[in-house]
């Protein structure tokens, strides 16, 4: 797993304290769609090194986090910038949609 996993504390720090532009995939082990989307993000990550963060939350280990965003399913990719929620992509998303969304969040 090359995406850094976040628990609630880590989540607070990265998103709200550091205000880093990043995405967080909410995922779980027993979900076949997640197993397609997570590797796609892992491959994408190096291209954005230093520019955009890629993180991972396991919803079974951190129930509180998905309840906070009232998520209704996995996988979901949530986007953040300057400590603000910037929208999400749900289900089996393609690489291109993630790239587009990142560009939108970074305002490029």
């Amino acid at each position: 797993m090359s995406l850094q996993q976040l628990n609630s504390t880590g989540f607070e720090e990265i998103i709200y304290d550091n205000c880093e532009p990043c995405l967080v995939i909410f995922s779980k082990k027993e979900c076949h769609v997640c197993k397609e989307v997570v590797p796609m993000l892992e491959e994408l990550k190096p291209q954005y090194d230093g520019k955009f963060g890629f993180y991972y939350v396991d919803v079974e280990e951190d129930k509180e986090l998905f309840q906070r965003f009232s998520l209704k399913g996995v996988p979901q990719i949530l986007f953040f910038n300057n400590g603000e929620y910037q929208g999400k992509l749900a289900g089996k998303v393609e690489e291109e949609s993630v790239e587009e969304k990142i560009a939108e969040v970074l305002g490029v």
């Binding site: 979900c31 076949h32 769609v33 998905f66 998520l71 209704k72 399913g73 996995v74 749900a90 289900g91």
Partner: peptide, 17 residues
């Protein structure tokens, strides 16, 4: 509404309900 209540896999998503 996919992922916001619309689902196709119970193993994956049932617990959210």
């Amino acid at each position: 509404l996919r992922g916001s209540g619309v689902a196709y896999c119970a193993t994956c998503d049932a617990e959210f309900f």
